Simulated scan of single mutants.
Amino acid sequence: MAGVKGRSGGARPGAGRKPKKRVDGDVASTKQKKPVPIQQGEKDMLELLQDIALGKTEATSLQVRAAIAAVQYTHTKRHDGGKKDEQAEKAKKAAGKFASALPPKLVVNNR
């Protein structure tokens, strides 16, 4: 009621979302089942991630995040510093093939 002290707000009865009903009449729980970690054995982290991506193995989200973090230390990316070193090695190999020839020696007879 407007103008009455202590009665100017609050929740209305029946307001809000209605609870979902199950077949047996109970309210459906919103909690999901916790996934069980699966033992992977001695597997390379990159192989594990590839198996998960292809659907060969199931893993928890914690296992996937740990594998992503670990694979960065075992498999370097090209832009992590290896690119310039690789190009320098290729240039050294190519320099031997295309090196300029020495000029001919001039032999002078001083007689």
Results as ranks from 00 to 15, higher is better:
V71Q: 06
H79Y: 08
H75Y: 01
G55H: 12
D51W: 15
D44S: 07
E58I: 08
S61D: 13
D51Q: 14
V71C: 05
A66P: 06
E58V: 12
R65F: 00
A67D: 10
L49C: 04
E47M: 04
Q40K: 12
D80R: 07
T60L: 03
A66C: 08
A66L: 13
K43L: 13
H79A: 04
R78N: 13
G55K: 05
T57P: 01
Q39I: 06
S61A: 08
R65C: 00
D80F: 12
L54P: 01
L46Y: 11
T74S: 12
M45H: 05
K77N: 14
I68L: 11
A66F: 03
A66N: 09
Q39C: 07
L46F: 10
Q39F: 15
Q72G: 02
K56M: 09
K77W: 14
T60N: 04
H75K: 04
Y73F: 12
Q50F: 11
E58H: 06
K56G: 03
A66T: 05
K56F: 14
K77L: 12
E47C: 12
A70M: 11
V71M: 05
L54D: 14
A70P: 01
G55S: 02
G41I: 06
I68V: 08
K43G: 10
E42C: 05
E47Q: 14
A53K: 11
V71H: 04
K77T: 14
G41D: 06
L46D: 04
V64H: 01
G55W: 15
G41L: 02
Q63W: 06
G55M: 07
R65M: 03
H79E: 08
D80I: 08
E47G: 13
K43I: 15
Q50S: 15
L48T: 12
T76F: 13
Q50R: 06
R78L: 14
E47A: 15
Q63V: 12
K56A: 13
T74N: 07
A69F: 02
E47K: 06
Y73S: 01
Y73G: 00
D44H: 02
E42P: 10
I68D: 02
A53G: 09
D44G: 04
V64D: 03
L49E: 01
E58R: 02
Q39N: 08
Q39R: 12
L54F: 08
G55Y: 14
Y73E: 01
Q39V: 10
R65S: 01
